[in-house]
């Protein structure tokens, strides 16, 4: 496969345009409840790899700038994911949709 055909999620997110709201995350996670969740399904259920587990602290790292705004995370874990839209004009910017 050539570069025209990315397979990894990182490369696919690289195809997207974003208007990142620098320093202003539209997502927050209740870290204690995240740590207590044995399944942590948001780590794989998010289609844009926004959530990663910090190996040392066990905390949830939030790459909010990757977010493609589908909303899956807060359906998966409404108990501890607080997800809302970015401010108007910010966030992912689809050209095809």
């Amino acid at each position: 496969m050539t570069n025209n055909n990315p397979k990894s999620i990182e490369d696919k997110l690289g195809l997207l345009q974003y208007r990142t709201d620098e320093g202003n995350s539209h997502i927050s996670v209740d870290q204690e409840k995240f740590k207590a969740d044995p399944i942590k399904a948001i780590l794989f259920a998010c289609p844009a790899k926004v959530y990663e587990e910090d190996e040392k602290t066990g905390e949830c790292l939030i790459n909010y700038e990757n977010c493609v705004e589908c909303g899956t995370c807060h359906v998966v874990a409404p108990e501890y994911v607080n997800w809302f839209y970015p401010e108007g004009g910010k966030g992912v910017h689809y050209r095809y949709g």
Binding site: N4, N5, P6, K12, L13, L15, L16, P47, A48, V68, C70, G71, T72, V75, Y94, R95, Y96, G97
Partner: peptide, 11 residues
């Protein structure tokens, strides 16, 4: 042989 143009997710 196609070229990926965009990846998207939606519910």
């Amino acid at each position: 042989g196609g070229e990926s143009l965009e990846y998207a997710a939606h519910m």
